[in-house]
Computed example of a mutant assay.
Amino acid sequence: AKGQTPLFPRIFGHEAGGIVDSVGEGVTHLKPGDHVLPVFTGECGNCCHCKSKESNMCDLLRINTDRGVMLSDGKTRFSINGKPIYHFVGTSTFSEYTVAHVGSVAKINPAAPLDKVCILSCGISTGLGATLNVAKPTKGSTVAIFGLGAVGLAAAEGARIAGASRIIGVDLNPNRFEEAKKFGCTEFVNPKDHNKPVQEVLAEMTDGGVD
């Protein structure tokens, strides 16, 4: 991507659920056997951002696509035939085993099925968090959600939890509409069904625009 430093080969992936195999020296709140989710925007727990309720951009572990090594020693933990393979956003989940900073994993309930809870590590938390922590819709408000994939559905769920009375789902694929009702969407707009910009359609539906 533009502005990024090419660093290859590397193991990609950032969503997963896993079980701790071993821990490094000094790690006290995790142990082998714990179930965890990797998080590509980790938390050191000590910087001003980690201590703030308004930010999660940790000084140490915020997302960094250029960094391909561990912070402790500047080296990678992956290799093949003696040649290094680099990390990706501190998670590298497209692998049976991975190595991450302790601040880049979150301990979860072992009863949670890993094949389902894995999307909490990015997709669900992104949509839900964007609604509840950033947009902060008020009770009775009107909200529009653009795109009804995993992130959009999570955003709709956040709007439902917040008490929005109208949650308008916008998507080019009408096959997504029925499922989106389960996450709080109350009505839908398919831009292909209109001969005017979708923002004008929404403005007409909502007496001037969503909240």
Rank of each mutant, 00 (worst) to 15 (best):
K51Y: 01
K51D: 03
S52W: 00
S52Q: 00
S52G: 00
S52E: 00
K53F: 06
E54D: 11
E54S: 10
S55G: 06
S55E: 08
S55A: 06
N56F: 12
D59H: 05
D59C: 10
D59M: 08
D59A: 11
L60Q: 08
L61Q: 00
R62I: 11
R62G: 15
R62Q: 12
I63D: 07
I63H: 01
N64D: 12
N64Q: 03
T65A: 09
T65P: 15
D66Y: 03
R67P: 06
R67Y: 03
G68E: 02
V69F: 06
M70L: 13
L71V: 06
L71G: 00
L71K: 04
L71I: 07
S72I: 11
K75W: 06
T76G: 12
T76E: 09
F78T: 01
S79T: 06
S79L: 02
S79G: 13
S79W: 01
I80L: 13
I80Y: 15
N81T: 05
N81I: 02
G82W: 08
G82L: 13
G82N: 09
K83A: 15
P84C: 11
P84A: 14
P84E: 15
P84G: 08
Y86I: 04
Y86L: 12
H87D: 01
H87E: 01
H87W: 00
F88H: 13
V89E: 08
T91I: 05
T91L: 07
S92E: 00
